[in-house]
Every structure is written in C-alpha cells, then in structure tokens.
Nucleic acid binder design. Sequence first.
DNA 1: CACCAGGCAAGTA
DNA 2: TACTTGCATGGT
Length: 217
Amino acid sequence: MTISKTVYNALLNEWGPQSWWPATSSLEMMIGAILTQNTSWTQVEKATKRLKDENALNIESLASISSVKLESWIRSTGYYRQKASAIKRMCNTLIKKFNGSTKTLFSLETQELRMELLSWKGVGPETADSILLYAAHRPVFVVDSYTRRFMTRHGWSTENEPYEILAKRFTKELEAEHTVYNEYHALIVRLGKTYCRSKPQCESCPLKFLLIHPVSV
DNA sequence: CACCAGGCAAGTA
DNA sequence: TACTTGCATGGT
C-alpha cells in the first residue's frame, strides 16, 4: 500500500464521495473553472446563478453578449475583466473550431486536448487539467494551491517543484482511473479548507493517526 | 487593518 | 530560464 493510496483511503473513509464538479453541464463546468481562479467558490456560485438567471449560460449567448454585461454579472469573482474576455474567447473558439459543441472539443485525444486548452488565453495548467478531469473525464491529476501546500507540509515535495512533477507523484502510485483522481483532488481541497489553511489544525485532522508528520509551513 | 480565496499572463533580466 | 508584477472582488 503506497502512502498516497493510504491517504486517499483515509480521506474517502472520513468524508465519502464529494460529488465534484458541482455543475450540470460541461459548459458550466468550464465556466466555473475559469471563474474560480484565485477566488472562493461561494463567489463562483453567485456568478453562476446570475448567468443562469439571465438565461446566458450557453455558448451562443456568452459569445455574443456585450463584455460590459458579462463583466457586471461575474464581478464578484474578481479579475472580472480578464475572466469575461476569457469566457467570451472560449465560446467563440468553440463555435469557430468545434461546431459550437463541447462534445466535438472533447473528441480530441487527451494530450491534443490539453494543448488546445492551454493555447486559450486565461487557461493555465490547473484550469486545463480541471476541465480534462471533471468535464472530459480524462485520468489526469489536478494540482492546485491546496495540493501544493499539502505536499510541502508532509514532505512530499520541496517548494517550487514544477506542476507536472507534482501531478506525476500521484499518478505514478494510483491506478489510472479518472474517478479516483476526481475524488482525491476534491478530498484534498476539503482537507485544505478544513484543517490545512495558513494556520494548520493538525490535532483534529483526519490524517493525524497516520504517521505523517507535518514539516513546517 | 491585513490576509486569503479551488491562477494566469506579460514583463524584465 | 527564473523571478516579479498586475489583475480585483468579497469574506474573515
């Protein structure tokens, strides 16, 4: 039993499946992935609800509405000008290159799809991999700030290691099942939100019975 | 008041 | 390649 698998089992046993990604369509998931960049999820929920209330959560609407309108609807998520233009560009690309359909986009092979997503301004490694995992159901591991902090604190990585190296550390030890990567990432985020913020609460952490000693910051 | 939240791109050396 | 800076609102 590898350590990463042991941690996964412990977290899943503690909290059960997290039912990520909380979205009812691929497009909603992709929009959410952009909106949540460096922003708390409650703000994303607010913005998403607004888009639904405005009946604008579809590719055609988002591609054609005015930037000013879209910016005002997603204002609460911060960086709203950049995010609005990223969303509009994404929808225009879907129309021009992929027949206005996320299914056509997702017919690409995983590596091709990753390259395509990364070529979109406003989509970096985490956003691309989130889309690959949670919308396209590909077996990739998402490394976010919670994952980095968790790995650093427990001696699984030193600081400033490249994104792909950290992701590999998980994928090497786990079976290549997208459902496992899905749950694991969501569980790490929950762990980080609950016990592993800037002020750690190791005494009550569900991992405390494992002999994993935090190593400072 | 400071600090943080499910990052990314562009500029500089 | 490796650092630095701008983007921006809202909650604690």
